[in-house]
């Protein structure tokens, strides 16, 4: 159990050689590989994060656009409904006007027919009275006197007619 200094020195040199070999062939390349991989994974992760953020932004944009489209469609539908209501109102107005016109016209016509009928009746009555009085008083009465007397008569009749 005695220290052999020659062996110690030899072992120290041996260990230093092992250290050099391992440093050259194991530690440097493998630590470099690990570092590279770590850096790569980090960049990949950052990349993925960026892409994810982009996708999120895009999705938000799409959502916004969809919402816009939705709102526009609703506005259009509302506008169309309003338009339709307006048209319906117009049509109703028109129809009402038409009905009124038709009614007015019909009333006018009726009025006119009535007036015509009155005139015609009056004429008929006049001529009937004329013919009757002609037949009755053929001989001595001249026509103008007769006409006057009959007109008075008719006037009286009219006033009677309008009474009720």
């Amino acid at each position: 159990m005695e220290l052999d200094y020659g062996q110690i020195v030899a072992q120290i040199i041996g260990f230093l050689v092992v250290l050099w070999i391992m440093n050259r062939f194991a530690w440097k390349p493998f630590l470099k590989i690990l570092d590279d991989r770590k850096a790569r994974i980090q960049t990949d992760l950052a990349d993925a994060e960026g892409k994810r953020a982009g996708a999120e932004k895009l999705e938000q944009q799409y959502q916004e656009k969809l919402r816009e489209i939705d709102a526009e469609a609703r506005a259009r539908i509302q506008a169309a409904v309003k338009n339709a209501e307006k048209i319906a109102a117009e049509i109703k107005d028109e129809a009402r006007q038409d009905v009124k016109g038709i009614l007015d016209r019909a009333r006018d016509e009726i009025e006119r027919d009535k007036a015509e009928a009155l005139v015609a009746l009056r004429n008929d009555v006049v001529s009937m009275a004329l013919r009757a009085s002609e037949k009755v008083l053929k001989e001595n009465l001249d026509e103008t006197r007769h006409r006057k007397a009959i007109a008075d008569f008719v006037k009286n009749m009219e006033s009677i007619d309008e009474q009720p």
């Binding site: 030899a10 041996g14 092992v18 070999i21 062939f25 194991a26």
Partner: peptide
């Protein structure tokens, strides 16, 4: 002992060289 140490050193060197 130095002989066996050198054997181990060679072994380690070869393994690391082949691996890297």
């Amino acid at each position: 002992n130095v002989f066996f140490s050198v054997l181990i050193a060679i072994l380690l060197g070869v393994v690391s060289y082949v691996a890297s």
